[in-house]
């Protein structure tokens, strides 16, 4: 196994272009598991941890541009105010050691339907910035996922960053696991209220071949909130319940070792209803920082 450790982004892209079966590695929380279990035997490991740009975040064009190599621990401590949904998702990931290593860029590149960041990115309306020696392009995150562990990333491209609009309203994230920490999602749900554009964002995890939005639920809720944005009146319980049903209806889960399809659908409806209730309560209170 060869090991390449580029020091600059340009070198990394050149290496990627030169060796398209290279396996990029950042935190290693997926790749090393694959190698240790003998399921992955890459001819070349492309270590991206020494590329300075990937370790940084900043604001650009009104969005937070989060370098692909920023670990979850920093998302929690540095971006909890601007990206509360993503920070809440990051808190559910693994152990402190995993959160110190794992990255949102790695989550995107792996594109597992169970990746914890995806529902939050979908709800926030993020864009994935990918690059190659051919240039840079931005892909709306909803178009990025193409199948089970397949993404829109070309074989000469690397994830450079993810661009996430900072919150304009309450965001929530909820995840089911069969223990109370360090667990892969049985089902997950991300919600973002966007009062600035009178819109609702959703994201579903672990309940379809890819992470996905629940468009019918978003439209329904945006319609129900018409007028309520201004009045900040109470949300009828029936609205939250219907929203939950529509979110569950967007899922296409399977039975597997972690849970049944029926349970996943049920759990999504409960999570969607509860997270909406919490988010709206925050909005009514003048939208303080989320729980």
């Amino acid at each position: 196994m060869e090991f390449l450790q580029p020091a600059t982004w340009e070198e990394a892209l050149e290496a990627r272009a030169a060796s398209r079966d290279a396996v990029p590695i950042a935190g290693g929380t997926d790749v090393m598991v694959g190698i240790n279990f003998g399921r992955l035997r890459p001819a070349l490991l492309l270590d991206l941890t020494r590329v300075p740009e990937l370790q940084q975040w900043g604001t650009d064009d009104g969005a937070v541009r989060l370098g692909a190599g920023v670990p979850y621990a920093r998302v929690i401590t540095e971006l909890g105010d601007r990206l509360p949904g993503l920070a809440m998702a990051a808190r559910t990931i693994g152990s402190p050691q995993i959160r110190n290593r794992g990255t949102v860029g790695g989550n995107l590149a792996t594109a597992s339907p169970a990746g914890d960041a995806h529902p939050a990115l979908l709800a926030a309306g993020a864009e994935v910035e990918v690059a190659s020696v051919r240039g840079t392009r931005r892909i709306p995150v909803a178009d990025f996922y193409r199948g089970v562990k397949r993404s829109a990333l070309a074989d000469d491209e690397l994830v450079a960053a993810v661009r996430i609009p900072p919150r304009t309203g309450p965001q929530q994230y909820s995840k089911i696991g069969t223990r109370n920490a360090m667990v892969i999602a049985v089902a997950a749900f991300g919600l973002a209220l966007h009062p600035d554009r009178r819109a609702v964002g959703t994201g579903i995890g672990s309940a379809a071949p890819t992470p996905r939005r629940a468009p019918a639920a978003e439209e329904f809720l945006a319609g129900e909130l018409d007028g309520l944005w201004e009045s900040r009146a109470e949300l009828p319980p029936a609205t939250a319940a219907r929203f939950g049903e529509l979110v569950a209806g967007a899922a296409a889960p399977i039975d597997d070792v972690r849970g049944t399809a029926r349970y996943r659908v049920h759990a999504l409806s409960v999570m969607a209803r509860r997270t909406l209730t919490w988010a709206w309560a925050d909005y009514r209170k003048g939208d303080p920082a989320c729980a």
Binding site: Q172, S174, K175, G177, N180, R274
Partner: peptide, 19 residues
Amino acid sequence: DVDLRHMPGGVSNTTHGEG
């Protein structure tokens, strides 16, 4: 008053006491 670490589901934020 909820501390998620003490709730069913833990910091996965599944309940603030509901259910």
